[in-house]
Simulated assay, not measured.
Amino acid sequence: MAKSAINLPTYQWTVLAGGTAFLLVLLMLSMTTGAGVYGATEVLGYLHGDPTRLADDKLAMVINTLRLPRTLAALVVGASLAVAATLLQSATRNPLAEPGLLGVNAGAVMGLVLGLIFFGVESTWGYLVWASAGALLGNLVVLGIGLMLGQASPLKLILAGVALSAVFGGISNYLLLANQTALEQFRFWNLGSLSASELDAVGAITPVVLVALALAVMLCRQLTLMQMGDAQAKALGIQTTRVRIGVLVASTLFTACAISIAGPIGFIGFLAAYCGRLVEPVALIKQMLFSALFGILFLLGADILARWAIQPYEMPVGTLLAVIGAPALIAIVLRGGFRSLLSVK
């Protein structure tokens, strides 16, 4: 498996090299864009250890408190949502699956609302625990529905996800309306934003993301074989139930980590996984690699655009991605690739 992951065809090396170069450009733009009057000259001087820049307390605050945390958060959140979507698409054999469309995000949000209102959660670990509980519930329902539907049209699973999101969203809104303090704390975060990211929070969730990533890599071979169908996979010795439990755990951790620091950001997972599958349609470990790269590029690029769009104010990146992602989803479905999804069986 490691050999196949290294031996990439020329076009995949081209995509990887081009994406990495573009990522470096976006990282620089992210560090030089946003609150404050500091641009590339000041930021580069600070990062290179210029004594004059290091002595500027305001510059240090802008970089260490505002720009660096949200840049690192974009890397972690973008990769997490992309890999979670790739796992869910593979486990459900549904090319439209992603945490936002299947109601997993809404489940994580509901879990966090319960933690805020009834247990006074304020720490990053508290957010992570309660978001994990809600995401786990959403994933259990989604994978359960997927097993019941079997080979039915993937669009049915999406419709079930929409209904699930409505239920979780309705419960969350009802609870928040009865608690104004939690509503104020929750309102901006619920739009999906990286602006409140903190270095400590990113550092706290990164080990959890790495654990989820290690589990995802371990599942790649079995999930690839399961694309032939459960019967064939079982004939090859694959324990499909155990694999789906692994997907449940990994996708729950990915989703909860992303939501605990950025809120419910939709469409990133779907778009990144779709692009990753275009680059590598078969080998799941390669799909995850390219999906993670695209997820980071999309989220980082959208976050930079959100800072520019309505200056001197800032648009929540979740709102911007909804405006961009919804038409993209419709366009992709209407094009040849997913046209069959419109025929609900």
Rank of each mutant, 00 (worst) to 15 (best):
V62D: 06
A40H: 10
L54H: 07
L47V: 03
H48M: 15
T32K: 06
Y38G: 10
G36I: 00
G36Q: 03
E42Y: 08
A60W: 09
L44V: 14
V62A: 11
A60P: 09
R70P: 04
T52R: 11
L59D: 08
N64T: 12
G45T: 05
A35E: 12
V43N: 06
M61A: 15
A60S: 15
D57K: 14
L54A: 11
R67G: 04
Y38W: 11
I63Y: 01
Y38P: 05
P51W: 04
V43K: 01
Y46H: 07
M31Y: 01
L66N: 09
A60L: 08
V37F: 11
A55I: 03
R70I: 01
A60Q: 13
T65A: 13
R67V: 01
T52Y: 09
D57E: 15
A35S: 11
L47M: 02
A35K: 11
A35F: 08
M31A: 12
A55E: 12
V43W: 00
D50A: 07
R53P: 09
L68A: 10
Y38F: 13
H48F: 15
A35W: 03
H48P: 09
L44H: 08
A35C: 00
R70M: 00
H48A: 14
T71A: 09
G45I: 07
V37C: 09
L44S: 14
A40L: 15
G45A: 04
R70S: 02
L47D: 02
I63N: 01
V43E: 05
A60G: 14
D57R: 14
N64E: 15
A55R: 03
L54S: 09
D56S: 13
I63S: 04
V37G: 14
G49D: 01
D56F: 13
K58G: 12
A55Q: 07
L72C: 05
G49Y: 02
L59R: 03
G49W: 04
P51Y: 02
A55S: 14
D57L: 15
K58Q: 12
Y46S: 01
K58Y: 11
D57H: 13
N64W: 10
R70T: 03
T52W: 06
L59N: 04
L68T: 04
